[in-house]
Write a protein that binds this DNA or RNA. Structure first.
Lengths: 232, 232
DNA sequence: CCGCCCCCCCCCATTTCTGGGAATACCCGG
DNA sequence: CCGGGTATTCCCAGAAATGGGGGGGGGCGG
């Protein structure tokens, strides 16, 4: 299957489910690629241009919401998932002027890869087909996975985020808990300098110069999780 | 809905779909008192004990595979997803001795949280009900999200998250981007000392003594989000 | 065998953060 | 009117992190 065929199939099933548009996309990964890697949609051209020009890839409310849940959600439920800002409302108004109505978005997150989602949207004024949302959840999930496999086949290199060694990760986890290098050394039973070096190497791998962004990026790409940090 | 009711419902629908067991869980080593962890299953007790005793939380092949895909997979497809080791095969033999047959696992990943999954397994010797796998994908996804919401409600710490002032939050966001106090001062147009004080107050509110755990806690409770940090 | 990666140890100098103080001023609501 | 929260500036000393060098040793696959 090619990307064009997948897009074609998605457009067709979207229509059969009662939607007008679909958008299957990676959300912006700021670390490397300036553009989303996976991207298939049949949105109006004007809307896509506006979206890109304003770099909404990561700040779009629908995308933000898809980062805090593991299953699909109707756009009408957005306020329950995220804090809506003035700008978010403007984005929706803009979308409506481009003919986009209500929608349903299925998040698709794989640890260590850019987060993504598959959205289905109705034409302006048309309600979301409630009876088909379960189907949309299924279609969205499998469509994203299909696109992801195409993407991996095309570009196996970029699929790998910075990887930390076990020791680097151990040090980082204790660092995120607020331990100093010296304390981490005692905890892990190695020397102070070794801990300094592990964290130094970890920073280099992520291309950052400070502990805090290191922690943030490692959390973002799944190298460490909140549970690693907060447990016990 | 309570955890018990969710487990009850999952057990029932598992049976109706043609499975014998289910397991809805976060993926963790259980070594460090996993208080804030989702875990519901109706596996045989012996198997669960073995699983915990051997700390399979993160190394179990099914869990590993669920970290490299965004949709459900039959266990028979594991070799296509991950590199199977000798130990993995032993784990499956052990599971079979405990009455567990084939299965289907739905990954569930939310950025920044522990990775998780919802698995359905047949009794030994019984085949996976191919005709119900799409349904299993749906049930697994929504069941995990339901469990996740229960888990979030149960957590007391999130009930009263410390509030930061706008300025404290601004400083924190720039700090998470790796800026020094001095740089933040230039960016926000205030003095170096003011930035130091904002971040000092923010640390006090969160009861931490370092920038990195401050960032982590503020990310965890939603005071700031990855999007705030990574955008533009 | 070598190269590569991981892990461990040590030194240096410099920057940055943290934890104490103190002070002024604003706005808002009780 | 006053109290509370916010925002601002300034001081200090010490702790911690960062950036740059050195070394080792082991395993693993080409």
């Amino acid at each position: 299957m090619t990307e064009a065929e997948l897009a074609q199939a998605l457009g067709q099933i979207s229509a059969e489910m009662g939607f007008r548009f679909f958008a299957l996309t990676h959300h912006l990964d700021v670390r490397c690629a300036p553009q989303p890697v996976i991207r298939l949609d049949n949105y109006p051209r004007d809307w896509v241009s506006y979206f890109d020009d304003n770099k909404l890839g990561a700040s779009d409310p629908v995308h933000r919401a898809s980062h805090v849940t593991s299953v699909g959600f109707a756009w009408s439920a957005l306020p329950k998932l995220i804090q809506m800002t003035q700008r978010d409302s403007e984005i929706f108004e803009r979308a409506e002027r481009n003919g986009i109505g209500d929608g349903f978005t299925v998040p698709a997150n794989v640890p260590g890869e850019a987060n993504g989602s598959c959205s289905f949207a109705t034409a302006r004024g048309c309600p979301v087909p409630e009876e088909n949302l379960a189907l949309a959840q299924l279609v969205g999930a499998f469509a994203f996975e299909a696109a992801r496999r195409l993407w991996r086949m095309r570009d196996p290199e970029r699929a790998t985020p910075p990887r930390l060694t076990d020791r680097q990760r151990d040090c980082l986890i204790w660092a995120t808990r607020g331990k100093t290098d010296w304390e981490i050394a005692r905890i892990l039973g190695v020397s102070h300098e070794t801990v300094i070096m592990h964290l130094k190497d970890a920073r280099v791998r992520y291309g950052v110069t400070k502990r805090t962004p290191l922690a943030v990026h490692a959390l973002f790409d799944g190298t460490i999780s909140f549970v690693d940090i907060l447990k016990s």
